[in-house]
Nucleic acid binder design. Structure first.
Length: 417
DNA sequence: TGACGTCAAGATCCG
DNA sequence: CGGATCTTGACGTCA
């Protein structure tokens, strides 16, 4: 069982994906962006390996305009060494990667041009995974598309388009239930018709249910039947509703108790779970660590990442966690994350926030120039007086972290929490 | 015609 | 001028 996250890796230097707009796109620009993005991908893969993450969704933007303007560009040849290096790391760490064209890739459209571009898009995704020489367990996840007032015809059009796809695409293609059109029951019947695996998405099913009397475990069990040995372990999507946003909007982070309850409610043979959540790798590490066997080293690394955010919200919980981590005889991962979540749920408190920022400033107090010190102190005082936001002060401290290459701080969540 | 979702690029504003 | 903040882009479907 693996836990994964999608596309972006937060709080990791050099892992940003870059893009451009149609207006500024040229073959040279696209090719050089692809090269930079491949370097970023390697950083993400490195991060995953050192953080116990063995599943990851590669952004569709890894090659900007990969399905259109860059379709004929030889990025796979130009960057073959980089891609080989990434591929070797993925394989030797037993990482499973995937790609997921968005809601605008529609294979069953009545508009033939939309279908033509959908096929190009799927071809591009398969080309990228093929460039990494990965087998068919590395999937491409797709939604079924629209109903156009006639679901039966829409499904038949899908089946026909699917039949005409190149095997390099179909061997990777997996269908997912979506949050408003095709529910999991409809996806399952289409999957059995065409012989493709189904990915169950719990939040989509919550807002677009096939049968409200059935549990998540029920659907996961049914979906399992659609996965054969060439497809690898069953994959699912997991997300939680953001309480402050519209129905279906993903939460900022995965709440650990609700996640564990869901997980333990699943059948004994657990599926791979792709998290869809704003804080990306942060939640993936959290969930994976709570399910894996004890890893004190990684837990302490995590504490280093969270500590100043915890201190900022609750000095009491900060010292409680320090006590907790002195106990090396038990696996304290779940309690650690419960306490961390509790601290982060506290409202901003100016005095505590200033205490935490002074701790962080301590990394630079002997390094910074007088001008930098003045600049920081001015921002801090403006925050104190209510003339600047906390994130403005943090931006200042983040810049200093980069300037003085304070890797410990650069990997911290302090700047993004 | 706008909402939907997603993120960064690009544009504009501010001191 | 640099930096912060606001708007646009790229995609297709559906109300």
């Amino acid at each position: 069982m693996r836990i994964g996250y999608a596309c972006l890796t937060v709080a990791v230097e050099g892992a940003d994906i870059h893009n451009c707009t149609l207006k500024t796109a040229s073959p040279d620009r696209l090719l050089s962006l692809a090269g930079e993005n491949f370097a970023a991908l390697e950083r993400m893969v490195d991060y995953n390996i050192s953080n116990g993450i063995h599943m990851y969704r590669i952004s569709s933007d890894i090659v900007p305009f990969g399905s259109s303007l860059a379709a004929e560009l030889p990025w796979d040849l130009v960057y073959s060494e980089r891609l080989a290096s990434i591929a070797e790391k993925i394989k030797s760490s037993h990482m499973r990667v995937s790609m997921h064209p968005g809601q605008y890739t529609v294979l069953n459209s009545p508009n033939s041009d939309v279908v033509r571009r959908a096929i190009q898009d799927l071809t591009y995704h398969a080309r990228f995974l093929d460039a990494l020489q990965l087998n068919a367990t590395h999937k491409i996840i797709l939604h079924v598309g629209g109903k156009y007032g006639d679901p039966d015809s829409a499904l038949t059009r899908f089946a026909e388009s699917y039949r005409n796809l190149d095997p390099s695409v179909t061997r990777r293609l997996v269908l997912e239930n979506d949050g408003s059109i095709f529910n999991i029951s409809e996806v399952l019947s289409l999957c059995s018709r065409i012989g493709a695996p189904a990915v169950y998405d719990n939040l989509h099913n919550a807002i677009n249910p096939a049968d409200e009397t059935k549990s998540d475990a029920y659907w996961v069990t049914l979906c399992r039947e659609t996965w054969n040995s060439a497809d690898g372990a069953q994959k699912t999507h997991y997300s939680q509703q953001n309480p402050n946003k519209t129905r279906g909007a993903h939460s900022d982070t995965i709440a650990i108790d609700a996640f564990l309850e869901y997980y333990h409610g699943l059948p004994d043979e657990k599926p791979d779970m792709m998290l869809e959540v704003k804080d990306k790798n942060r939640s993936a590490v959290k969930c994976q660590l709570c399910l894996s066997r004890r890893n004190q080293h990684l837990l302490e690394t995590e504490w280093g990442r969270y500590k100043y955010s915890v201190l900022e919200r609750s000095p009491q919980i900060y010292s409680d966690i320090r006590e907790l981590l002195k106990d090396k005889s038990n696996d304290n991962a779940i309690v650690f994350y419960q306490m961390t979540e509790q601290a982060l749920a506290q409202p901003e408190d100016k005095g505590r926030a200033m205490n935490a920022m002074e701790h962080v400033w301590g990394y630079f107090s002997t390094l910074a120039t007088p001008a930098e010190a003045k600049r920081y102190q001015a921002k801090r005082d403006r925050y104190h007086n209510g003339d600047a936001s906390l994130s403005e002060v943090k931006r200042e401290l983040y810049r200093l972290s980069q300037r003085y290459q304070q890797d410990y701080l650069l990997g911290s969540y302090y700047f993004s929490l």
